[in-house]
């Protein structure tokens, strides 16, 4: 418990703020890295996921493939990329994007698949074009599950981004690695606490967002937890 108190003291010690290795700077880096990764992953995964969800094509290939990707150890990928492109922020971005894609992809296509077939059938029968079905029906109704996928991805990315500094990629991992080398427990624990706070904040934020994007007419019917459980399959790494 003493160690925990020391760690909390470390977190609130003004001496640990400011400068390139301040908690504030490092947290900023951590969030910027995570945000960038999520953005790239969304740009890649969402169109694919929507395509699979709308057409039903490609599911047989993509689903096992993204299952396989889930088995990929991110630390190994991170280091392998770093050896090829050099240390710095590029390797973490690549490795984390790969980590984030399966959840977002699954969120995108399962969001579409969870829509009652009859609703889409009726939309087509009254004369909506495929494009209109996508924009007006599938995307709004699939949004809660997509955000659910994003929520899982964000949690994984924020957690795993602690490994980025192993290849000098910046972020909060700095305190963990430094503390580890110098046997500085308060620093290690304190750094962990900050990461955990960020992870919980992400959970809270996306949880809220997930509620907000449930279309009113759907919320009226099912006050259910829309968290996407199958997507949360990969434990937070790092």
């Amino acid at each position: 418990m003493n160690l925990l108190l020391d760690a909390i003291r470390w977190v609130f010690d003004p001496a640990n703020y400011g400068g390139p290795n301040g908690i504030d700077t490092r947290s900023g880096e951590h969030l910027a890295l995570s945000g960038l990764v999520l953005l790239i992953a969304v740009v890649i995964a969402v169109p694919f996921g929507y395509f699979i969800g709308h057409t039903g094509h490609g599911r047989g290939i993509i689903v096992p493939l993204s299952g396989g990707v889930r088995a990929l150890p991110t630390l190994g990928l991170l280091i392998l990329v770093a050896l090829n492109v050099g240390i710095g922020v590029v390797a973490p971005v690549v490795a984390l994007v790969v980590l984030a894609i399966p959840s977002i992809l699954a969120g995108a296509y399962s969001g579409f698949e969870a829509i009652d077939r009859r609703v889409i059938d009726a939309a087509r029968a009254v004369g909506m074009t495929e494009w209109q079905i996508l924009i007006r029906v599938e995307i709004p109704l699939g949004l809660p599950l997509l955000i659910g996928g994003l929520r899982s991805a964000s949690l994984q990315v924020i957690a795993t981004a602690t490994l980025a500094d192993y290849v000098s990629g910046g972020g909060l991992g700095h305190f963990l690695f430094l503390g580890l080398q110098t046997n500085n427990y308060p620093e290690m624990l304190g750094g962990s606490i900050v990461v955990i706070v960020l992870a919980l904040a992400s959970e809270g934020l996306f949880g809220l967002l997930q509620r907000l994007v449930v279309p009113a007419g759907v919320a009226a019917r099912q006050p259910k937890d829309v968290r996407l459980r199958p997507v949360r399959s990969q434990t937070a790494l790092g």
Partner: peptide
């Protein structure tokens, strides 16, 4: 016009 069983209404439209 097309009317089906279970109406097939869009749940997110009023």
């Amino acid at each position: 016009g097309y009317v089906m069983q279970n109406s097939g209404l869009l749940p997110h439209f009023s």
